[in-house]
Design a protein around this nucleic acid. Structure first.
Length: 425
DNA sequence: TCTGGGGTCCTAGGACCC
DNA sequence: TCTGGGGTCCTAGGACCC
């Protein structure tokens, strides 16, 4: 089984350039050729940068407050993240890509692998160009395309295509010269820790990694490390995941706009997160058997004592019922809350998710069960129609002064008519 | 003053069983 | 005083990804 002939495999990785920035640019002609940055939730960190912003020296993941001076000096355009918009544009991009191959793996919001093994070597680059052109024409989003015989190598190709602004890069044979110039920490699957380990052992580029011994890599890392090495050698062992599988856990968490102390406010936020998570799993027709509640103070604040704690509660019967989940999570919160700390973040994780179709063993009351199902349906319907949290429960709070900051939102939602720009004629 | 959020997979080690 | 060995299952925590 493991000796399939991979020599003719071809993976194309299509990755949207500065995706969030590109989405904002779709609706704002004024920000086309100027430095633009999109911030994470709470306007915390830089998570997307235009080419111009990169040139100025704004780093990925940098806290916003650290680059404020740079932003001011260079008149950088700032946007709070707008995931409703990005999600919608992403679906449109993926729809276009599906026309090029039905063997597609949507890997993240802004990138997808497709299998184009059917293309001949001499046609591949042309094909890549065609993909780029059509995505751009139909959605307005610029992309980079990397093509090679393994997913890891197509990542390398894509990285180079982005850096060179080449658009399309096809890495065929003789990749060694490319790999020699490819930084070890840029290799897909090599993170901070592995980089450290490799560099300590003199392996500082992808070529050296490709040539280390199997025994060493297996002993020093794990199966994933070994797979990366094989893939650099052109032996495909990370398959295309074409099936859209349901999630196995569901986490909803947020940092607060300002630190909070009171149990009362933590309850509001945990309740809100719980309602949102419950709605998410109901949409996917899933139920949960385990809920984790966690709270913590800021890990960056050295002037105060750090506190972080979590509790996991197993549910006797798998459920998707908001009220039940809220009640359970609040019980958990009561157990881990400590007075006297300034909390920065709270969240919940639903795990052990199951298909909702499975029979629930609630002997007590099928009637009760039905009633609550109807209620959940009504809540979901109303919230879908009138906006998230249109219907909520009192415990989720009304003021919510802990809500996250979003001071630079473009307020565009391509999936909602209400937020379409108004034109005066 | 101000540092995101949501996932997956792997492994070591404990619990348990015979 | 001496105190097996091998197997499975589960979980917490770590590392990685975007």
């Amino acid at each position: 089984m493991s000796f399939i002939n991979n020599s003719k495999k071809k993976f194309a990785l299509i990755d949207c350039n500065s995706f969030y920035v590109s989405c904002e640019r779709l609706f704002n002609p004024k920000i086309q050729n100027v430095p633009v940055v999109v911030l994470s939730n709470n306007d915390g960190c830089v998570i997307s940068r235009s080419v111009e912003a990169k040139k100025i020296g704004i780093k990925m993941g940098e806290p916003y407050f650290k680059v404020k001076e740079l932003v001011r000096k260079n008149n950088v355009q700032i946007f709070s993240s707008n995931y409703a918009l990005y999600g919608d544009i992403s679906r449109r991009v993926m729809k276009v890509l599906k026309e090029f191959s039905d063997k597609i793996e949507i890997y993240s919001i802004d990138e997808a692998f497709i299998d184009i093994s059917f293309a001949k070597d001499e046609e591949v680059e042309e094909y890549g160009k065609k993909i780029r052109e059509r995505v751009f024409k139909w959605t307005g989003i610029p992309t980079s395309v990397g093509i090679s015989s393994t997913k890891t190598l197509s990542k390398v190709a894509n990285h180079i295509a982005k850096k060179n602004r080449a658009g399309v890069i096809f890495l065929k044979e003789n990749v060694d010269n490319v790999l020699k110039k490819f930084d070890i920490s840029d290799v897909w699957g090599v993170g901070k820790q592995l980089s450290k380990l490799y560099i300590k052992n003199g392996i500082d580029n992808a070529f050296k990694l490709k040539n280390i011994s199997n025994t060493w890599v297996k002993k020093s890392t794990n199966v994933l490390g070994a797979k990366t090495v094989m893939e650099l050698r052109g032996i495909s062992c990370i398959n295309l995941e074409t099936q859209e599988t349901k999630r196995k856990s569901c986490c909803v968490s947020r940092s607060f706009g300002k630190r909070i102390e009171s149990l009362y406010k933590l309850k509001e936020s945990i309740t809100t997160h719980c309602l949102n998570a419950a709605e998410k799993i109901r949409i996917d027709k899933q139920t949960t058997r385990s809920i984790t509640v966690f709270i913590r103070t800021s890990p960056f604040d050295k002037s105060r004592k750090y506190y972080s704690n979590s509790i996991t509660i197993e549910l006797p019967v798998a459920t998707d019922n908001s009220l039940e989940l809220v009640k359970t999570s609040i019980d958990g919160l009561n157990k881990i809350y400590k007075y006297g700390y300034f909390y920065q973040k709270a969240g919940i994780i639903l795990s052990k998710l199951e298909e909702a179709s499975g029979k629930e063993l609630n002997l007590l009351a099928p009637i009760l069960e039905n009633k609550s199902k109807t209620l959940m349906k009504a809540i979901d319907f109303t919230n879908a129609k009138y906006g998230r949290n249109a219907i909520t429960i009192a415990q989720a709070g009304i003021n919510r002064d802990w809500k996250m900051r979003r001071e630079h939102s473009s307020r565009i939602d391509t999936a909602s008519f209400d937020s379409l720009p108004k034109i005066n004629v």
